[in-house]
Amino acid sequence: MSVTLESQVGTPWKKPPFIQNSTIRWGLLIIATVYFFMALGSMDVNWERVYFGLERGRRFVAAFLHPDFGSRASDIKEGMMESVIMTVTSTVVGITISIPIALGAARNIAPLPVYLVCRFIISISRALNEIIVAILFVAIFGFGPLAGFLTLSFATIGFLAKLLAEEIEDMNKVQAEAVKATGSSWLQWINFGVQPQIMPRLIGLSIYRLDINFRESAVLGLVGAGGIGATLNTAFDRYEFDTVAAILLIIIVVVMILEYLSGIIRARVQ
């Protein structure tokens, strides 16, 4: 070993850098810094406008102290109902469709052509932003909750099928093989060998997706796809911050309840 105590004592010690090559290290640092300041420069902030806005910001914050649930109560109620309905139906339909797709997208149980088709569906669903999908669906199916329902179902498929397929690919092979060895049919094999292993994850993911779908349903209204978003948008346009605060508080509380429930349910199934 060439390292000896004599050669080391008296020499300063420095932590070995994360990137060994000093040219690359400094290069990356400089690029990152330059980019950072260019990006900041492109922000182009109109500070005067921001200054004027502060007053509105203060009013908005103050509105949270006295939210106005009353004056638009019927709009809020209707919007919330619509959001909840869209959330529930789309989650159910999305899950139902994503289970077969997840089975198809798991390389260890699906033949290659099926695998490719299912993976393609998943990629498409994941790559498209919900809002963009909603715009297209509104253009095709008209305004209303149907477009929102379809959007959320579509988004659920990409999310759930991908994570579920990964879970299936990670499952314990021995258990599944043991069931196959009994001479079961393919469906029986899925039912007894695969399903028990992925069930806890499926339930956990479904509830998580329910939560996401609710949050998403709150914005779909901005593009006319139903739900509380439309009411929210109107309130913003009229600068009715009290109503905005009321709606946002409701959303926050519902999300908190959903998260609390999902915590309980996930703890129970695992």
């Binding site: 000896t4 004592v9 010690w13």
Partner: peptide
Amino acid sequence: DEAYRLLDRVGLLHMA
């Protein structure tokens, strides 16, 4: 230096 000496004492200087 003390750290180097101790590591040398326990035979791990080359692992520093």
